[in-house]
């Protein structure tokens, strides 16, 4: 699929054990992930940056 210049892109990899790896996380997607799992401590600081610990993800 062709991407447009102003489109927002986040990629997710859902592992068999339920963990989700995220690449290029945007704030709207961080908000969606928080709604899916409000108790996940790793996502909260990404929704409202500068508060807590990291989300597992890779950008090489």
């Amino acid at each position: 699929m062709k991407k447009r210049a102003n489109e927002l892109n986040t990629e997710l990899l859902i592992l068999p054990d339920g963990r989700i790896l995220v690449q290029n996380l945007t704030q709207p997607m961080a908000e969606i992930l928080r709604q899916l799992n409000p108790h996940d401590k790793q996502i909260a600081p990404r929704v409202s940056p500068r508060q807590a610990s990291p989300l597992t993800h890779q950008k090489s």
């Binding site: 210049a5 690449q23 290029n24 996380l25 704030q27």
Partner: peptide, 15 residues
């Protein structure tokens, strides 16, 4: 290939 505001980097650098 990408230009957007992201929150996946080090906390002290985001957004």
């Amino acid at each position: 290939f990408l230009a957007q505001t992201e929150v996946s980097d080090e906390l002290e650098l985001i957004p």
